[in-house]
């Protein structure tokens, strides 16, 4: 790991800014994602802030099975994010398509469209699971990834 990358990783570990995108969810995981940012769970104590623009975000928090209409937009948003970037698939639908798998308008999980770093199953995902996932993702930045090592989640 070069010195520059170390410095960037150190920076992200202290303040990972997230961008929330709903790719076709039922809303359940979205309200739990927002709930994780509010006083009871307070993800902000880890430096997590919800950001509006993809160009300011480090982590793309993506919920829902990808519908045909959001597919292109999801790709666009992912491409607009600066490196290094991470993707969290929140909810069973985002992991695999879940209950909507096989519907005519549904592509499947998020990983059909963009690479995913963390999978969080659950219907709906509990805020505790989300906090744990963020923690695990940030832990992987501390040391270089070994070849063949699995992602956190």
């Amino acid at each position: 790991m070069g010195l520059l990358k170390k410095a960037i990783n150190w920076g992200i570990r202290k303040s990972p800014w997230i961008l929330h995108f709903n790719a076709g969810a039922c809303n359940g995981c979205d309200i739990e994602t927002i709930a994780a940012l509010t006083p009871r769970f307070d993800l902000e104590r880890m430096g997590v802030i919800q950001q509006g623009s993809p160009r300011h975000a480090d982590i793309l928090v993506c919920t829902g099975a990808v519908t045909l209409q959001t597919k292109e937009r999801l790709k666009q948003i992912y491409d607009q994010m600066p490196e290094p970037k991470f993707v969290m698939a929140v909810g069973t639908c985002a992991c695999s398509g879940g209950i909507f798998d096989g519907c005519y308008c549904v592509m499947g999980g998020i990983d059909k469209v963009i690479p995913v770093d963390v999978y969080i199953p659950g219907c709906a995902v509990r805020p505790e699971a989300l906090i744990s996932a963020v923690q695990k993702l940030l832990d992987t930045l501390k040391r270089p990834k070994k070849r063949g090592e699995e992602d956190a989640g």
Binding site: G24, T67, T70, F100, V106
Partner: peptide, 11 residues
């Protein structure tokens, strides 16, 4: 709108 259409009624 229609970004969230999943084809639930058909399912």
């Amino acid at each position: 709108i229609g970004y969230n259409h999943r084809g639930l009624e058909k399912a």
